[in-house]
Design a protein around this nucleic acid. Sequence first.
DNA 1: ATGAAAGCGCTAACAG
DNA 2: CTGTTAGCGCTTTCAT
Lengths: 340, 340
Amino acid sequence: MLNKSISIKDIARASGVSVATVSRIINNNGRFSIKTKKKVESIIDQLGYEKNKFAVGLRSNQSKTVGILVPDITNPFYATVVKKSEQLFFKKGYATIICNTERSIDRENAYLKNLFENRVDGLMVISSNINQSQMTSNISVPTVFIDKNPNITNATVVSSNHYEGGRLATELLIKNNLSPYLLMTRTKSSSTLSRIQAFKDVLKKRGFKNINSRIVSLDITSDHFLSHDDQLDNFMKKNENSPQPLGIFGINDNIAYMAIQAAKKIGLSVPGQINVIGFDGTLYSELSSPKITTIVQNTDAITKKASNKLIEKMTSQKQVIPSEETIEIPVSLVMKESTI
Amino acid sequence: MLNKSISIKDIARASGVSVATVSRIINNNGRFSIKTKKKVESIIDQLGYEKNKFAVGLRSNQSKTVGILVPDITNPFYATVVKKSEQLFFKKGYATIICNTERSIDRENAYLKNLFENRVDGLMVISSNINQSQMTSNISVPTVFIDKNPNITNATVVSSNHYEGGRLATELLIKNNLSPYLLMTRTKSSSTLSRIQAFKDVLKKRGFKNINSRIVSLDITSDHFLSHDDQLDNFMKKNENSPQPLGIFGINDNIAYMAIQAAKKIGLSVPGQINVIGFDGTLYSELSSPKITTIVQNTDAITKKASNKLIEKMTSQKQVIPSEETIEIPVSLVMKESTI
DNA sequence: ATGAAAGCGCTAACAG
DNA sequence: CTGTTAGCGCTTTCAT
């Protein structure tokens, strides 16, 4: 189907040298005279030679390709991580295969199989369900997790300090003398769990009782924007006349955004009657009106750390004994308009 | 470095058959007894065999991989296209390599080189600068363009009807008896050009003079959200006291969003004193307050058409003679809150 | 129904 | 400084 492409054999023949010499020149190793180099390179230009990665891979057992497993690339936070990583990888000579898992275990498995068949040199796994059994089959592929799931041992993990973020958010609400509530979704990644735990811990320390009644779980699994949610509307109506103003901690900016919408819909003012704080520092917090006070993840730092760690793993000669390693990236509270 | 993985040779040896038989069973072609099939498959399970795509590719000259060139995956419109395409491709057995070009010609070239070296079976190119010379080297790789650049001949293009969208937007402003202005950015893709042309044509038809003075080009090249732009502020201040209310056509939702912010900042009401209409139908139009009336692109239809077209091209046996083919997808005007 | 063997394009070990 | 050659894992043709 494809035009038969030209190989180093063709180049060798055309320039009157052996394939070995051509290979040496292409990869700039071994010794060769400057004269043959010139000659061969001109032929290469002339004939339009393109390296065949199949052959190179088969020989060297390296694909110069990495795979990224990501829940949803239309989520701005993940999109940014993927984009920056991809750029870094490409700069180092690696192509990137993107896999949108939609948080489905079946999809993750199918993708992993494909990636392993493609002999990826490395794997970046973002916030997934992957468990030990799925990974162990190819434990040898260097892997870095972003926001790991607790099920894997001996993993290298780069993650925001979600617990600290949750603490900062909750403390802010309490400092402002608000009645604290946590709004969350169904998805329970390790990052979410840490945020929730922090909320609970702070409340407990402050002497709150019946803490679980302050955690509202919305029936939402998507990363996507929803203009409207019934449960949220009901929650707002129920608390409309609360004597103490509400302080809502949205588990992410999306939820915080939706909370603000629901509050505004029944005429509650933000931050007058209700304060809202989000998490992540995505576009949502900036496009909302009022803009959402939020815990910002340092995407840049996360990505750099994770990508560099992966590249380091891929290029290190000696087989590193896998060991637990967790790198925590600080978060920061950014005050905007949805809190006083 | 990697644990030497097991090959069909190992499987063959372990099951007491030849590699040919194993290959036939794996690919379910040729003939073999049900009994050996059972035997071999159990060995495969037991040993954990994984196909080596290098070898398959080298033999068959097929990578089962497609490349996507996209300007910026953090742009919600592109993210959606990429995500949906990737899912479709994967369902058909293709892995997807993502390339963020940032609209840089150098990057595009580097990516193309890499993709060709990886022997991608197909290429999806979104709204790029690619010109004839860069593509011709590998004209044989099946390619589909989304929003093509005019420089390529004989391309298969899937695109929204940007001209019609521009016409709809402009007509709306005029119908509402507003003083029409077009706000645009520096990036001049073919899609942008069509939108602009429609604006001009409508104004001309309606007898407007000095049309170019109604087109304001902002010094923005990024797809990203900017909270603020000086030129925009100046534009608003200049037109603050316009006797006839302004009708602004933002070349995309991002610009429309920024225009609304700039207007609100100096106390102009939207849509009271200024009407704004955007283009694309991204998150921006929904998260803005007021929500932005916009020309919505049917991302789903675009993606499906483009992906299926590409798969069709990749799988068609006969070498199709390349010919110009343009598929236009209708757009729709969605009224929201930023226009009366 | 199964096996033997060629060969895809490349790299690297060895020979000169 | 350069050439010859084996072999990476797989598919496929040709035998049997």
